[in-house]
């Protein structure tokens, strides 16, 4: 897809909406999912920040991606981001967890 770090107008799918999803999965919040970064796998390629600047930032010193958004993402958008992450460092969490602190992303 075509995206620039400056805009989110070219985001895939629709704008993240607050509509409840029909997901049957009890682990997922009704309005979407959260993503977590596995600090042991991240190589700081920055694709997540490019595709979803409202959710991700690559730290300029550590070169590790961080999930900075407080909002959940629609599952389809989350899956796309997971797919595009070169290092396989993104995973779905049902709530915000600071993996960089507990050190155990899985």
């Amino acid at each position: 897809m075509a995206a620039s770090p400056d805009t989110d107008s070219t985001e895939p799918e629709q704008e993240p909406t607050r509509e409840p999803s029909d997901s049957d999965n009890p682990d997922q919040a009704a309005d979407g999912v959260y993503l977590a970064v596995d600090a042991n796998r991240c190589i700081g390629a920055g694709q997540c920040e490019m595709l979803a600047p409202e959710h991700f930032r690559v730290d300029d010193d550590s070169a590790l991606a961080e999930f900075v958004g407080q909002d959940s993402l629609p599952l389809t958008e989350a899956e796309l981001l997971i797919d595009r992450c070169p290092s396989g460092a993104l995973g779905i969490r049902s709530e915000i967890v600071d993996v960089n602190q507990d050190g155990d992303p899985d």
Binding site: G44, G46, D60
Partner: peptide, 18 residues
């Protein structure tokens, strides 16, 4: 590779390139 890449990656993050 991970070690080497980490050592250089910070110079190539979106913001540092900008």
């Amino acid at each position: 590779h991970t070690r080497l890449r980490r050592l250089v990656a910070s110079s190539f993050t979106p913001k540092n390139i900008k």
